[in-house]
Structures are given as C-alpha cells and as structure tokens.
Simulated scan of single mutants.
Amino acid sequence: MRTHTMPATTITVLVPSHRRPRELRRCLSQVVGQLAEGDELLVVHRDGDEETSAAAAGAWADTVLVPVTESGVWVALAAGVRAARCDVVAFLDDDAIPMDGWLDAIRRHMRDPSTGAVGGPILNFRGVRTSNSFFSGERVTWATRSSRLHSRLHQLPAHRRVDEVDFLPGSNMAVRRPLLDLDRHPMINMAPSWEWRVGLDVKRRGFRIVYDSDIKVEHHPAPRELSRTDQERIARDVGYSMVAIAGTGLRGTRRFQSLAWWMLMGSRESPGLLLAPAAVLAGRTSPRAWRGALHGRVLGLASACRTRGRV
C-alpha cells in the first residue's frame, strides 16, 4: 500500500432532506453538539422547499444550505460534495440520529492517513428497534466473485468490531473529500448500492475502508407502502446501478462474472433475465417491475460502455 500524507482535521456533515422538517430537526440537534471548530454542517434541499431550509437554519445558525433544482438523492449528494469545504465528508440521512461520540470516532479514525473511508452500523427503528440480531466471527461486508453484495451493516456484532471492509452504508459513512467524485458516473434517482461504487473508488486508489461498530446511528424510516410504480422504479434503479458499477469499477474476469450475474440472475427487488419469469409466476414481482429491471440493465450497460477506460 502506498504512503499517504492526508491526515484529516475537519469534517463536513452532509444531510440531504426534502419536506421532512420534524425528522431533520431531530437529526441536526444530535449533530450540532458534536461539531468541532472548523467543521461544517451542510443541508441539501430542493429549491423552493422553505420548510426544510427553515428547519435547518433553526437547528444551527451556521448551517450551509445548498438548493438543488432536480429531484433524486444522487443529485443532492453530488451537489453537497461539490459544496463541501472540509477534509472529510460524513453522509447522514435526515431520518437518522447519530449516537453520542459519532463524529469524534470518525475523526479519530481519519487521523490515520491510510484510511480513506470509515463508518459503522445502522440500527433500524419502527417504533421499536428492528436491528435486533447479533453476529460473531463473520465478515461484516464483502462482494462475492459474482459481486452479489453481502452485509451485516444493519446488525450488531456480539462484541465491538473494528474491521477493514469492502463498503459501508451510505447513510453512516465518512469519506475523504478528494476521493469523492460523484459526478463521474451519474446514477439514477436513489442509486441503490452507490456506497459500493464509492468503496471501489476508495480501494482502487489504495486507501482502507474501516468499519467500527461504535460508530452507530439510529434510523427511523417512515412506514410506506410501495406502489407498482415504486416497485418498477426500484427494479430499474437497482438494475442500472449494479450493472453500471460492475461495468466501470471491476476489471477482467470479475467484470464478466459480475455483469453475467446481474444480467441473468439479479436480486429479488430487481430480477434478471433468468430469475424474472420464475419470480413473476411465483408472485414475488410484477411484469412492470420486470420491465423496469430490464430497462435499468440496458441503461447500465450503455453507461458502462460510455465510461469504460476512464475509471
């Protein structure tokens, strides 16, 4: 591994938000007390969303507000990264609550110049905590030879874990700002698994990705029913993201294996060409979702072809 000379001193906490002022105020109230001199609190909001901008300004007078005109979390994250001025960017959802010591723990890890990204588990709550399973001994995250993602990022280890991993959860992850270039390979809307893309970039440049189970956030997602349109969009976005990531972030045999897996098999939420017919017949997905999954894969292949050789 190369020698690094990039010790971090300041952190930008980046929170994208849209029309959830109550959740945003709760999130920011837990962030403000952890900020140190030189740190930055940055909230990305849709242009014209006065509720969000008022909630952010009310939580802390020095909040930096970044308006965007397009929809989608990926657009918001890219705009926030462009506006960030600190050494490290820490990503946080507006419905997440960082635990005490969250920012200090990130800062301690980033004092190691070989660390490019650091994060920890996300504890899901829906009234009560739903991340209530524990694990011991297994790897925290990895990508298999076929590049299926495996993670225990929503579970707790039986004992404190500090491990080097392949990727981190996007809503509890801090990355050195020079390693972030979200404009290079634009994603669609929610961009599922964008954190894997970021992880590949960080590792490709010779830096470590560290998981620390003490860097915890509580996640309080609002309950929602997915319509058929939502399912089609998710199937498209997952299909696009995974094919685009594999096609641009992997090389040689791994690229071929990964693309073959995602084109033919895929996942439950975005089935591939072989898995989709069985999923439709079994009622696990709809023809519309299958159509979205195929559409996303075609877009992902086109994106990979356009950007090949530039990663």
Rank of each mutant, 00 (worst) to 15 (best):
H4Q: 10
M6G: 01
T9F: 07
T12W: 01
V13I: 13
L14M: 09
L14I: 07
P16K: 07
R19W: 02
R20T: 14
P21V: 10
L24E: 05
C27N: 13
L28V: 08
L28C: 06
G33N: 07
G33P: 02
E37P: 01
G38L: 08
L42Q: 02
V43W: 04
D47K: 14
D49H: 11
S53A: 15
A55C: 11
A57R: 15
V68A: 05
T69V: 12
S71G: 10
S71T: 12
S71F: 11
W74S: 08
V75F: 03
A76D: 05
A76E: 07
R82L: 09
R82K: 14
R82W: 00
A83T: 05
R85P: 00
D87E: 07
V88G: 00
V89L: 04
A90P: 02
F91A: 02
P98W: 03
G101Y: 11
W102L: 05
L103Q: 01
D104K: 12
I106C: 02
R108Q: 14
H109S: 04
M110T: 02
S114R: 15
T115F: 05
T115D: 00
G116Q: 03
A117T: 03
G119A: 07
G119V: 03
G120V: 05
G120Y: 04
P121Y: 11
L123F: 10
L123R: 09
F125Y: 15
F125D: 03
R126P: 00
R126G: 12
V128Y: 06
S133Y: 10
F134N: 02
F135S: 09
S136A: 15
G137F: 07
R139T: 11
W142S: 12
S146A: 13
S146I: 02
S147D: 09
H150R: 14
A158I: 08
R161T: 15
E164H: 06
D166C: 08
D166W: 06
L168G: 01
P169V: 08
G170N: 10
G170Q: 05
N172P: 06
M173S: 06
A174K: 00
L180Y: 03
S193C: 09
S193T: 04
E195F: 03
E195M: 09
G199I: 06
V202K: 01
G206L: 09
V210C: 04
V210E: 00
Y211P: 03
Y211H: 13
D212I: 12
D212H: 12
S213L: 10
S213Q: 09
H219F: 14
P221A: 12
A222Y: 05
R224I: 07
R224W: 10
E225K: 11
L226S: 11
T229P: 00
D230F: 06
Q231C: 11
Q231S: 06
D237N: 14
D237H: 12
V238L: 13
G247S: 11
G249F: 00
L250S: 11
G252Q: 11
L259D: 01
W261C: 04
W262L: 06
L264M: 14
L264Q: 12
M265H: 12
E269P: 00
L274C: 10
A278K: 13
V280G: 03
W290H: 04
R291F: 08
R297W: 06
G300S: 09
R306N: 03
